[in-house]
Design a protein around this nucleic acid. Structure first.
Length: 111
RNA sequence: CGAGUGGGAUGGGCAGUCGCAGGCAGUUUUACUGCGUGAGGAAAGUCCGAGCUCCGCAGAGCGGGAUAACGGCUAACAGCCGCCGAGGGCGACCUCAGGGAAAGUGCAACAGAGAUAUACCGCCUGCUGUGCAGGUAAGGGUGGAAAGGCGAGGUAAGAGCUCACCGGCGUGCGGGGAACCGCGCGGCCCUGCAAACCCUAUCCGGAGCAACAUCGACAGGGGUGUGUUUUACACGGCGCUUGCUCGGCGAUACCCCGAAGGAUGGCUUAAGCCUUGCAGUAAUGUAAGGCGUAGAAAGAUGAUUGCCUUAAAUGACAGAACUCGGCUUACAGUCCCACUCAAAUU
RNA sequence: GGUACCAUAGCCAAGUGGUAAGGCAUCGGUCUGCAAAACCGAGAUUCCCCGGUUCAAAUCCGGGUGGUACCU
């Protein structure tokens, strides 16, 4: 499986929000934009409105666990940003995974 | 069995698969293999106190802040232990920022005659004629608070004016380590607020790991003045100096400032934890033995399966960011210890 | 992570322990043929919440909740 590379600059997140295409769902929002790095990179956003530190950490872990099982199917060079919503903290990673796969297929990341 | 009071523990366990972050070892070389480790009692709030780091460190003053019965513990503390006093509870027990109002200043709205000093209605006496003068503060009314309380004597009416008891103040003796407690004597009485200023006693230099140190790289910016004058002196500027002031130090071809960003250290062995013995009423101290236990930098503990315990295991509050000692706040359920009251029985 | 500050009517806000000023907006009335403007009047009862000091707390003290700013 390919190594997971994360986005860590605010500029890269803003680039994904402004230029990327998005798909939304009650439990997850996905942004995707092509990059020049040659590999897929991902980032996770959990706002303070979602909950306290424990709940934010749980959202982050669930999304990362779901992406780690989906990442092998991704092709091309994309920057992907996942945003957690209010319902994310009550779900499990197996619930997030089909939502994420459907979003990435509609955005063209998974052929 | 019922109703309570105080204190403590726990916060599911075991195993398998995939995955994450450090550490050690090996292979080999920057990736794999193996071994072992990996969130809390509050990690939270940042309310106190310290370590540590830098600045300051000839000091001095002003200003500011904190604490508050007494004795002890502690590195220190607004913490803890013991004890005193006051208040609450039938009780176990709980609560208390609990020095000084007789050093001084200030405030006490409205109401009330009067708010720290008084006389409106009253009471009594005298003159007179429905007021005036004098005495008085028992009673009325206002207020949170009205000049110690209550009773007796006394008086024209009254008053600590006198006396007994109670309360307060001063003082002597006894007990106690002290706060304080008990008894006696004296005079005759003082409003409340200090979480208002303040006084007394004790204590505090400032900032905080985004501190700070080292390395590398760098867009740029600022200062080097004036007068008398010889080199020197005076004034001023610049930089460093804690809130301010006095004062101090430094540089003048070198000094200072510096946006965004990088690497390494700081970083985890620590006033550490557990057991037992000894000293102490206790907090705590001490000796021996054992354990040694997260350290990231967009930020690691997740996903899933089975079995067991359980009322429930789909989870109560909740996620380390330099580290400790406390306090405060949040917390489903379960268990343990000591004690009190009531009822019943003996 | 650390350090400061704020919370008063729908909005902006003043407030010195003694029963909360003002402006905009809203509502009712006067004026007008109708409106606007002008004038008159009304509305705070939990001063973010809990406790304490005091005769008395928006104000003083302690704890909590929510928000804002700065340090990179």
């Amino acid at each position: 499986m390919a190594e997971l590379i994360t986005l860590n600059q605010n500029v890269e997140f803003r680039h994904a929000y402004n230029r990327g295409k998005s798909k939304s769902d009650p439990s997850l929002i996905t942004y995707a934009v092509k990059n020049r790095a040659g590999v897929c990179r991902y980032g996770i956003t959990v706002s303070k409105k979602t909950g306290c530190a424990v709940e934010r950490n749980r959202c982050r872990r669930i999304i990362r666990a779901a992406y780690s099982s989906v990442a092998g199917e991704c092709t091309g060079a994309w920057d992907i940003v996942f945003v957690a919503r209010f319902r994310t903290k009550t779900l499990k990673s197996t619930d997030i995974e089909p939502v994420m796969r459907r979003h990435l297929k509609e955005l063209g990341v998974i052929v």
